[in-house]
């Protein structure tokens, strides 16, 4: 495997290593949770680790690295952070709602039912 690394000053190399390792470890734990947790609704919580602190760590590492390499503040990683903060909740919420809807249709005992009143109304109108 290639073992080269960017030629950074000592303090920057250590800071980048720290944030990168922290981000990667947290993301890894989140994905292990996705694999280990036992029900869908419990699993929904696991990827949030990677999407918050995991991404944050890797993005900070990247920001430090490129700011030092190009000797000017490089901030475009903020875009990914903002974007993930806004989109991940929407994805997880929609998925959880879809799962809840499917479980309610099947009358699964694990989910809160009966169907909430405003949903029932919408169904009648259709």
């Amino acid at each position: 495997m290639m073992m080269n690394a960017p030629d950074l000053p000592g303090w920057a190399a250590l800071a980048v290593s720290f944030f990168l390792m922290a981000g990667a470890i947290i993301t890894f734990i989140g994905s292990v949770g996705l694999w280990r947790l036992e029900s869908f609704y419990a699993r929904v919580h696991a990827p949030t680790l990677g999407a918050t602190l995991g991404t944050g760590g890797v993005l900070i590492a990247s920001m430090i690295c490129f700011s030092v390499l190009q000797t000017r503040p490089v901030l475009h990683e903020v875009l990914i952070a903002v974007f993930l903060t806004v989109t991940t909740p929407v994805t997880l919420m929609l998925l959880a709602r879809a799962a809840l809807h499917r479980d309610r249709v099947e009358a699964s005992p694990d989910v809160p039912g009966p169907r909430l009143p405003w949903e029932r109304k919408r169904r009648q109108r259709q």
Binding site: M3, A5, L8, P9, G10, W11, A12, A13, S17
Partner: peptide, 15 residues
């Protein structure tokens, strides 16, 4: 910003 230190670069490569 300072010079690169060989052992710190090695730590970075490993991490």
């Amino acid at each position: 910003l300072g010079a690169s230190v060989p052992w710190a670069t090695a730590v970075l490569a490993w991490s």
